[in-house]
């Protein structure tokens, strides 16, 4: 059995979209199993099954969400040792990277972070990464199984399985915080989490980014109309016109399904962050702005005129299109 456990992120409101993308990608590799940290409610199991999970491992107590990476990595390692998967897929992000790194060390397994595609051929897993600030696509083969792959959110689209596996089985996995691992946990003495609001929901498929303070307000309105996240160029965040968390770039946030650049000319680092977006829209007064060269649609004009007018065209748009641009549950 080529079982593919992948770690599922859930919230009180359900399964997050990047997790459904992982399940979609995992179906191409084998029979997907999902690992849920915390409470695997019937609703969560049903949703995972809809996207192809044939087995759900529920790990530990609801407190699991409050721990750092170590107990999660430990649980994934135990599940992998018991089920011998061809690959372990995790969503890219601070926690996903930490978990994947530890899993790879403990299994002495090949790791490919930030993949945009993953495939298997004759039992060997390959994945594609965008490297050198977006300038090259590198395909890597994993030489020591299981392949540990972190996938960029929005790189693949989540699609429900053709034949929904309603018979998904749920098995409780003993929490890695149980005795036996105590000596190595939990490491963090204090972990406080607060909502990022009004920070962006970067798993949301759209992003509207702006380069100047004045543009930020217009961008925010447009983003609201699209149900998209707001981003900013480095100029904006360095001047504290917007929180640093909003910065798009090599060290910031990345791929979106639709990326609307408002008044951004497109420094190389900014392009590195956004050029893998599926659709790029540019609004800029300067017809020579480099971003126009990679835009699917561009308007040479004043963003303060164009953006408000275009967003009034779509009041409350997206509300009836959950797959298009509704922000995911927090």
């Amino acid at each position: 059995m080529s079982e593919v456990p992948r770690s599922a992120e859930t919230t009180a409101a359900g399964v997050r979209k990047p997790t459904l993308e992982l399940l979609t990608a995992a179906r191409a590799l084998g029979e997907p199993a999902a690992v849920v940290f915390g409470d695997a409610s019937d609703q969560v199991v049903a949703q995972l099954a809809e996207y192809g999970a044939t087995k759900v491992y529920a790990v530990g107590s609801p407190d699991m969400q409050a721990f750092l990476s170590l107990p999660k990595a430990e649980a994934v390692v135990q599940i992998a040792q018991a089920s011998n998967p061809v690959a372990i897929l995790v969503t890219s992000g601070p926690e996903g990277k930490d978990v994947a790194a530890r899993v790879a060390v403990r299994l002495n397994a090949g790791i490919i972070p930030d993949a945009t595609k993953v495939s298997v051929d004759g039992g060997t897993v390959s994945a594609v990464q965008t490297v050198f600030a977006g300038r090259f696509q590198a395909t890597s083969q994993v030489l020591r199984a299981p392949a540990v792959v972190t996938m960029r959110p929005n790189a693949t689209s989540a699609e429900a399985a053709p034949a929904s596996a309603s018979a998904s089985s749920r098995s409780m996995w003993p929490s890695a915080t149980q005795p036996g691992c105590q000596g190595r946990l939990p490491r963090a003495q204090g972990l406080q989490r607060g909502p990022n609001s009004p920070m962006p929901r970067w798993s949301s498929p759209g992003a509207v980014a702006s380069a100047r303070k004045m543009a930020s307000a217009s961008s925010r309105k447009t983003a609201d109309a699209l149900g998209a996240a707001v981003g900013a160029s480095r100029t904006v965040t360095d001047q504290h016109w917007a929180p640093h968390e909003l910065q798009v770039g090599q060290t910031g946030k990345t791929v979106a399904l639709v990326y609307l650049a408002a008044g951004i000319s497109g420094a190389i680092q900014h392009r590195a962050g956004m050029q893998s977006s599926k659709t790029i829209v540019v609004v800029n007064k300067d017809a020579k702005a480099p971003l126009f060269q990679i835009a699917d649609f561009g308007v040479v004009g004043d963003l303060h005129a164009v953006l408000p007018a275009s967003s009034t065209r779509s009041p409350g748009a997206g509300a009836d299109r959950p797959d298009a641009l509704t922000p995911p549950e927090h």
């Binding site: 790879a104 002495n108 397994a109 090949g110 790791i111 490919i112 390959s126 965008t130 490297v131 977006g134 300038r135 090259f136 696509q137 590198a138 395909t139 890597s140 083969q141 994993v142 030489l143 020591r144 050029q275 790029i280 017809a287 126009f292 060269q293 990679i294 835009a295 699917d296 649609f297 561009g298 308007v299 040479v300």
Partner: peptide, 18 residues
């Protein structure tokens, strides 16, 4: 534990409608 088997330039995005 892994090896790069292929690298190719990212296909240039061509400008769409401006």
């Amino acid at each position: 534990s892994s090896k790069v088997v292929d690298v190719s330039p990212t296909p240039a995005r061509t400008a769409g409608t401006i």
